[in-house]
């Protein structure tokens, strides 16, 4: 039951975040790169005031899977390591907290590029 509720929250919150993104695409014709950066920075700024944390606690993957969760993780990691090691920590914590995601993307990207060939879109 607890799992079902967690899944429902993740579905609704994650879906709603994507709907905001779709509205941006439809009404502003922004390209992929810009949309990704806007959401990432939004997540980072919300976490600067400690707000995104609440969303993560409430919705779990619904808040951590969207790219805004990546911004949250960067800021959270950077702020935490400032607490541990002083100002220099600002340059350490962000990438450390997100290292798994970035490294996975790079390594899998490399492997996939070696295995697969580009194909034409069918439609």
């Amino acid at each position: 039951m607890e799992l079902a509720l967690a899944l429902l929250k993740a579905f609704v919150v994650g879906g709603l975040i994507c709907v905001i993104g779709q509205l941006l695409i439809d009404y502003t014709h922004l390209t992929n790169g810009k949309i990704l950066v806007i959401f990432l920075v939004a997540g980072a700024i919300l976490q600067a005031f400690g707000l995104y944390e609440y969303l993560i606690k409430f919705a779990g993957a619904g808040a951590s899977v969207p790219i805004s969760g990546f911004g949250y993780a960067l800021v959270k990691g950077a702020v935490e390591s400032v607490k541990e090691m002083g100002p220099i920590g600002a340059f350490v914590g962000g990438l450390k907290a997100t290292a798994i995601g970035i490294s996975t993307a790079i390594v899998f990207g490399y492997a996939v590029a070696l295995i697969f060939k580009p194909r034409t879109k069918e439609m």
Binding site: I25, V65, G109, A113
Partner: peptide
């Protein structure tokens, strides 16, 4: 946006040019 905004869209954005410019 349903496939762009999740972290999977970020992954797609890294892998797609990698394949393309192989």
């Amino acid at each position: 946006a349903g496939s762009t905004i999740p972290i999977t869209g970020f992954s797609n954005a890294i892998v797609a040019p990698a394949i393309e410019f192989r």
